[in-house]
């Protein structure tokens, strides 16, 4: 069954919230609020997460793995290099000295953490993303957009909900 996209633009968060709540409460054929609903906003707005319902974020696991891997890599790379390739006494210190290696381990811990977090961000947020079928530059300015994907025949119902909540504008994908 063919799907089509709708983008409704709202002038503030309250109206958008009301619209989303109604969408989540309703049961429309071919429309699943947890998957087919995307809210676009110009600012980071924690309430969006509240009214959309809890969705997990996995970036912190990337961070943990990245930081640990960075730290371990540093320590073994450095100690390994000192012991295996460059077995030289310097300044009377042991060949594998702890204080300097810990300093470098610490730095690599952070380096790994930051790099892999950013990588995790790109993966989790789906960036770089293909532009979605409907977009309004108003969303990056001051308005809230709700993008929905639904069956052809349910489009009218959704449009009705949007209009009810004072949508400024409703964009529609050209029919297929």
């Amino acid at each position: 069954m063919s799907k089509r996209h709708l983008l409704a633009i709202f002038s503030n968060f309250d109206e958008a919230e009301a619209a989303v709540k109604e969408l989540r409460g309703s049961s429309i054929k071919g429309f699943d609020a947890s998957q087919d609903l995307v809210v676009k906003s110009p600012i980071e707005h924690p309430e969006v997460e509240e009214f959309l319902g809890a969705k997990p974020v996995y970036v912190q696991w990337f961070t943990l793995v990245g930081a640990l891997a960075g730290g371990l890599l540093a320590f073994f790379l450095i100690s390994g290099a000192q012991a295996n390739f460059f077995d030289q006494i310097k300044g009377g210190k042991p060949v594998v000295p702890f204080p300097p290696n810990f300093v470098l381990t610490y730095e690599m811990f952070i380096l790994g953490g930051v790099y892999i977090s950013v990588l995790g961000f790109f993966i989790c947020a789906g960036l770089p993303a293909r532009r979605s079928p409907l977009y309004s530059s108003k969303v990056s300015e001051d308005q809230i957009g709700i993008l929905v994907k639904t069956d052809e025949e349910s489009a009218g119902v959704l449009k009705g909900i949007f209009t009810k909540h004072d949508a400024l504008e409703i964009q529609e994908e050209a029919g297929k």
Partner: peptide, 9 residues
Amino acid sequence: EGTDRQWRN
């Protein structure tokens, strides 16, 4: 595009 998923992460 400022989607909720993008902002959340």
